[in-house]
Design a protein around this nucleic acid. Structure first.
Lengths: 146, 146
DNA sequence: CTGCTTGCAAATAGTTTGCACGTTC
DNA sequence: GAACGTGCAAACTATTTGCAAGCAG
């Protein structure tokens, strides 16, 4: 059951000095149930199915709080909208230019790239914080010349 | 001199069926002179120093045309604004979370990552089309705990 | 009680679009 | 001279913020 997980996250939030409200609890629950990336909009919609009063701006503010505490990460998927997910499942996103599909790949796929960049430029990449654009297997197969 | 280069690009644009106007020529010239990434806003400013009438929206429309023809690529540097550059100098961008610095690295830095993703997911990454967030050498050295 | 949180609406930032007029081919 | 391109303003999308009222601690 996911409510145990939700309570743990809520507890962490409280330990960091943030107040626990029903809106925040609902956003966290939505993230737990989502088990993947969701936009702020999608999260708001999900939360509002139980608590219609919770406003989109509250969702944004809650997500910001959760990011500051380190419980949530967000990624930009190329075209403006950001997706949010719980930080304890670090992964990267591959976004298909053709069909918009989002593929999640484990964090360690990028280990060698991280290593290369650190050695060549002293640059440490930030895990779980960028999306890679390209073309997915399906779109590569059905690909014409455009 | 770069005007030769500008004319070549203008010619390519025309060959693809687009009309050549002074606004479009100016945007292309600005890109050639920039020799790096620029936002639409910066390009507009540069163009307007010679031709004040050229509107920002025209710059956007020209950039869109140039992208369709394949002369220009754009990348999102994490926080909303896109940067544009000529497509025949493929490179990736490293963006520092700390100081906002943008480091350009050659395309082939990502060859092994591209190879890995193609084999594991059939996913072909799109060159010059994503930014990698992280922390640059300078910020890593002056780094405290937060 | 104190002051962090919230809902709302309006502001912001970056980009796109409708329209009537100007320009290119 | 027909169709495409342009300037302008207004729309749009994603996100942020000011403020008075609400609720957690």
């Amino acid at each position: 059951m996911s409510s145990t997980r939700t309570e743990a996250l809520v507890g962490t939030l409280r330990q960091h000095g943030w107040r626990v409200t029903s809106a925040r609890r609902a956003v966290i629950a939505a993230l737990v149930e989502a088990e993947g990336h969701m936009t702020a909009d999608q999260l708001a919609e999900k939360v509002q199915s139980n608590q219609p009063d919770v406003h989109l701006s509250t969702v944004y503010r809650t997500l910001e709080a959760l990011e500051q505490v380190g419980l949530v990460d967000h990624t930009h998927l190329g075209h403006g909208r950001a997706v949010y997910h719980l930080a304890d499942d670090p992964h990267q996103h591959l976004v298909c230019d053709g069909c918009g599909a989002v593929i999640e790949v484990p964090d360690d796929t990028f280990t060698s790239l991280a290593d290369t960049l650190r050695r060549s430029h002293g640059f440490t990449i930030r895990p779980s914080h960028f999306a890679v654009l390209g073309r997915c297997a399906a779109c590569n197969q059905g690909q014409a010349s455009g």
